[in-house]
Design a protein around this nucleic acid. Structure first.
Lengths: 324, 324
DNA sequence: TCCCGCCGTGGGAGCGCTCCCGGCGAGCCT
DNA sequence: AGGCTCGCCGGGAGCGCTCCCACGGCGGGA
């Protein structure tokens, strides 16, 4: 509650000048060992903490990065994805000595706030491929790192290997003797949806493709599989591009009297907590979400340090359970 | 990319003094209508945005509030709880014109940062009743609002009606003819765990209590029900204080050859996404998580406005599905 | 008519910091 | 011995804003 000491007071207490204390605080080598110790003692004794506002005012850097979640990402709030990503991001951002400010753009005008005057950089979580935000932000000159895959624009980004995960899932189905493998895809306007579909087609290697479009919801998985069963009653595997859709798929198969994995194998994607409790437990593709967050923050830190870091694609991993 | 205009430049452009522009920006009534319009035009034309750092430096208020998630709250990251709470918080914080900074304390020293110099107030998400953080923060003189229930200390807080939800769950079981109703509790050092247990005991109204302690994990639900079945093979209902534990309970009952809801009814708590996909779908208690977040932020805003708002307890709601 | 008060306004001071320039010794070269 | 360099240090200036004091002009009361 007592007023925080200022640089000036620390300087007086240590018997040095303001500049010297500033140098010590900022780790400049231009200070003799002896002086440094005296200053550090004064800092400790007075409990000095730098005033960030004053520093930001003169350096023109705020020491904060914004995490922006694009509008319409409801999906992020229904699964642990967001929490896990935030966890990874937070840990890496704090490690870089910066603070994280959260901006969920729910129809609010972010442009006013997202300027070099307020934040040093932006982390953008957006799976929608046609999102205009990445491009907009790039226009402000603010360093941006995208979580997901940019569409067209060349934005530094971190993505997970959606295509590779889908390939692994389908390869696994083929290896276990399945031959009529259908898929319920994600929405075509999401990078994740498109890439998983691409992986599916790729792994099929000439075998017959059997596709129906979903939107990552349980209902779309259910309807998708019903349609698939109409079109091809003898299908023996379903690759659902998301776990919720896989849950819907299981429901549709059960209703249709198909046993899983006896008649039909099912593989999901995400390894959400759902996957472990379905009946039977779901084979699925796990993505390293916390690692994604951490990598995003690290990429941004590199950008802020003036480097030109490469975008990254993180590996996914097939988790085999009883449904396949 | 062009340097942002300053107050000074807006003033020159509008042909007025610096002070007048400041008054307009801050909505002071001490400005004539005509002058105000001229200044507003200049602001719009130049695209002026106030420099928050400069303002913070002189007002000694930062316009930011911190969301602190106490250490060891892994549970928050496995369920949509965190994401939903953040959503409510973010929306209300932005509505109050402030920004939200996120501080997940993973063993880092927060004290240095959590000072009136850096943030105006703190929102604390912590279900651990013995958490020392609320008390610590109160010592700094920083306004604090707790999400959950404080233990001993008198901290403004917002909680959900855990006891009421548990009472409703048990009342429902009694109303459907169940008589030997067991419970798997949450950990006794969490407010939610204790309150749900209290609600259970309360609703039992003299009927025989049958309790085993869990820790909100699926495994503890499974082990708890096995022990319960040993002690009382004829139990006909289980109230699990969390959905994950309820999932474990279902597994244990299935293994023991009990049908749900035929032999034993099961009720969970939380209404997590899991609840809708179990077999059978889970009757559970829904809590208004986004509303919790919003209420926390509103309480803090009131505190910052110098009011003395009352803590709140938000109602919970029983969602009846097939498991009971 | 004169004075007082009040509204609207301009601008000085100063928030706490970093940047940078200039100065002061001590050592080294010539 | 004189001059130069170089390491280390002090402190002025100024970042963009709010606060507040002082000032000019106008209306109303005496």
């Amino acid at each position: 509650m007592t007023p925080r000491p200022t640089l000036e007071q620390v300087a007086a207490h240590a018997g040095v000048g303001r500049g010297t204390v500033s140098r010590v605080v900022n780790g400049s080598p231009q200070v003799s060992e002896q002086t440094r110790r005296a200053v550090e003692a004064a800092i400790a004794e007075l409990g000095y903490v730098p005033n960030l506002a004053a520093r930001a005012l003169v350096t023109r850097r705020t020491g904060t990065v914004a995490l922006v979640v694009a509008e319409g990402e409801e999906r992020l709030f229904e699964e642990p994805f967001f929490a896990r990503a935030v966890r990874g991001i937070s840990s890496a951002v704090q490690a870089s000595g910066r603070q994280l400010v959260l901006a969920l753009s729910e129809g609010r005008p972010l442009e006013r706030y997202l300027t070099p005057q307020h934040v040093d950089g932006v982390l953008l979580l957006s799976v929608r491929a046609d999102d205009p935000l990445p491009r907009q932000l790039q226009g402000t000159g603010l360093p941006v790192v995208l979580g997901g895959r940019p569409d067209g624009v060349d934005v530094p980004h971190v993505d997970v290997d959606n295509a590779g995960g889908a390939r692994a899932a389908v390869a696994h189905l083929l290896a276990t003797g399945r031959r009529r493998i259908a898929t319920v895809t994600g929405p075509p306007d999401m990078g994740a949806g498109r890439d998983r579909l691409a992986g599916y087609r790729d792994a099929l290697a000439g075998a017959e493709a059997l596709e129906v479009t979903g939107d990552f919801t349980e209902g779309s998985g259910y309807r998708g599989v019903r349609e698939l069963l109409d079109r091809r009653p003898d299908l023996d595997a379903v690759f659902a591009a998301g776990d919720s859709m896989a849950v819907g798929a299981l429901r549709a198969l059960r209703e249709a009297g198909r046993s899983v994995p006896g008649d039909v194998a099912v593989v999901g994607f995400d390894d959400s907590p759902l996957a472990a409790v379905t009946d039977p437990p779901l084979t699925t593709v796990r993505q390293p979400v916390e690692e994604l967050g951490r990598a995003m923050a690290e990429l941004l830190a590199a950008l802020l340090a003036g480097e030109e870091p490469a975008s990254r694609v993180l590996p996914t991993e097939l988790v085999v359970r009883a449904s396949s």
